[in-house]
Structure formats: structure tokens, C-alpha cells
Simulated scan of single mutants.
Amino acid sequence: MDKIRPDAAAALEGLLHDGMLIAAGGFGLCGIPELLLAAIRDAGTKDLTFASNNAGVDDFGIGILLRTRQVRKMLSSYVGENAEFMRQYLAGELEIEFNPQGTLAERMRAGGAGIPGFYTRTGVGTQVAEGKEVKTFDGEDYILERGIVADLAIVKAWKADDTGNLVFRKTARNFNVPAASCGRICVAEVEQIVPRGSLDPDTIHLPGIYVHRLVQGEHEKRIEQRTNRPRAAAGSTG
């Protein structure tokens, strides 16, 4: 099957519908599927639920879909630097289901592995546990968390071959692997598509069986927070 599409809009053709659940990889602005998010914005798909660690910033990442009011609900760990995310939540305009970060990653991984739910101590005795089943193991309470199975997963990788085997670069792997695995359909945007057989099997982070469509593109790679040490004075030996 030919998985490669000419652009992000073509990669999403026939997959989008109002009210769908989308799992998105990335952490802050690191490893986010920026081209696919822009294509979703341009398609005008609305009432979306996103499972993603956070929503980027106001004008980048999922933040662009918050600004156009295409997102109804976020399953997230972190509001982060996104002022519009915070404003919509506090104003009652956006539904948020907060998840501890490890729990969110495991919910995605479980969904991709066909595991409908799991028990965890994380969140016991807090608002996270409200309305959830509690079970005792070895004298300790655990809460039941459900696996996430998304209608669509969108992820960003460094390299792919034409079969969809993916390699992520350093910390950009973050949520991309579990997000990709939990989608009924997974679309990946990549920086490079290399010939089949050129990837060392030991370096492949996600097998191509999980990936249904690929698009190669240019990426902006913004830095969310830049911290620089003051420049040393001229002639300083410090």
C-alpha cells in the first residue's frame, strides 16, 4: 500500500469529521504535528476532542485550533504557556479532563495494546479519582483508568521509510509513540522519507504497521522557552 501523500491536506483526506477524538503527539512545541494541525484548522472540522499532553501555545500547535474554536474538549496533563487554553477553561468555554502525565501516556499505550483499562495509585484521594472505580490491592487503593482509542492519531517523526517505520529524534519522541499506537488511523508527518531498508531495525521507534499515511514537509521548530546566559564582558576570563 502506498502510504505517502503529497501534503498534509491530502494525508487527512476522508478521515476528518466533526466530533471526533484525535490523539496528538508532542510535548509543548517539541515533536508536534504542526502541518497536520494546520490542515485540520483549514478543513474547519469542529467539536473536536484532543488527547494531548498540552495544547502548545496561543498561535502554534493545538493552540491554533483553540483560537478558531474547533476544540470542544481536551484530555491533557498541562495547560502550559497557552493563555487562550486557560482563558477558555476558566470561562467554561472548553471542557478539560486533567490526567496525570504518566496516566495519560499509559492510557494511550493501553488503548493501542488492546487493554481496556488499568489500575493505578496515581490520583487516589484527589479530584482525579472522582467518579472512578476504586479497588484495593495489597491494602492499597487504586483507581481504574480507561485506555484511550482515538478515531485518528497525528504524530511527527524525524525519519520514515515508505512502509511507515518511524524514527523520532531525541526528546521529540515524547508522547508520539503512545499517541500513534492508540489511533484507529495514524497519520505521520516527517522531516525525511528514506529508502526502504536503509533504517537500522534497532533504531526504529514505531513499526510501520501502526502508520497508515505519511507526509513529508518543512517544519518551523519553534522554541517555547529560550533561556540564555548573559554574554561575558569583553576581555573577561571568567
Score class of each variant (00 low, 15 high):
Met1Pro: 13
Asp2Lys: 09
Arg5Thr: 01
Asp7Ala: 04
Ala9Ser: 14
Leu12Asp: 11
Glu13Arg: 07
Leu16Met: 11
Ile22Cys: 02
Ala24Phe: 06
Leu29Met: 13
Leu36Ala: 07
Ala38Ser: 11
Ala38Pro: 00
Ala39Arg: 08
Arg41Phe: 05
Gly44Tyr: 06
Gly44Phe: 08
Asn53Ile: 14
Asn54Val: 00
Gly56Phe: 01
Val57Met: 09
Phe60Tyr: 15
Gly63Leu: 05
Leu66His: 07
Arg67Trp: 00
Arg69Thr: 03
Gln70Glu: 12
Arg72Asn: 10
Ser77Lys: 01
Tyr78Leu: 12
Val79Leu: 13
Val79Ser: 12
Gly80Trp: 04
Glu81Asp: 14
Asn82Phe: 09
Arg87Ile: 00
Gln88Met: 15
Tyr89Phe: 15
Gly92Thr: 09
Glu93Thr: 05
Glu97Ser: 12
Glu97Leu: 10
Phe98Gln: 00
Pro100Trp: 07
Gln101Thr: 03
Arg107Tyr: 09
Met108Tyr: 11
Ala110Arg: 00
Ile115Pro: 09
Pro116Asn: 09
Pro116Gln: 08
Val124Gly: 04
Val128Ser: 05
Val128Arg: 06
Ala129Trp: 07
Lys132Phe: 11
Lys135Pro: 02
Thr136Gln: 09
Arg146His: 13
Arg146Ala: 14
Ala153Thr: 03
Val155Ser: 00
Lys156Val: 01
Asp161Pro: 02
Asp162Glu: 13
Thr163Cys: 01
Gly164Cys: 03
Asn165Asp: 10
Asn174Trp: 01
Val177Pro: 06
Val177Gln: 08
Gly183Ala: 08
Ala188Asn: 02
Ala188Trp: 03
Gln192Pro: 00
Ile193Leu: 09
Ile193Lys: 01
Val194Phe: 08
Leu199Met: 15
Leu199Glu: 08
Asp202Glu: 14
Thr203Glu: 15
His205Leu: 08
Pro207Tyr: 05
Ile209Glu: 15
Arg213Val: 04
Val215Asn: 07
Val215Ile: 10
Arg222Trp: 00
Arg222Val: 00
Glu224Asp: 12
Thr227Ser: 12
Pro230His: 09
Pro230Ser: 11
Arg231Ile: 13
Gly235Pro: 07
Gly235Met: 13
Gly238Met: 06
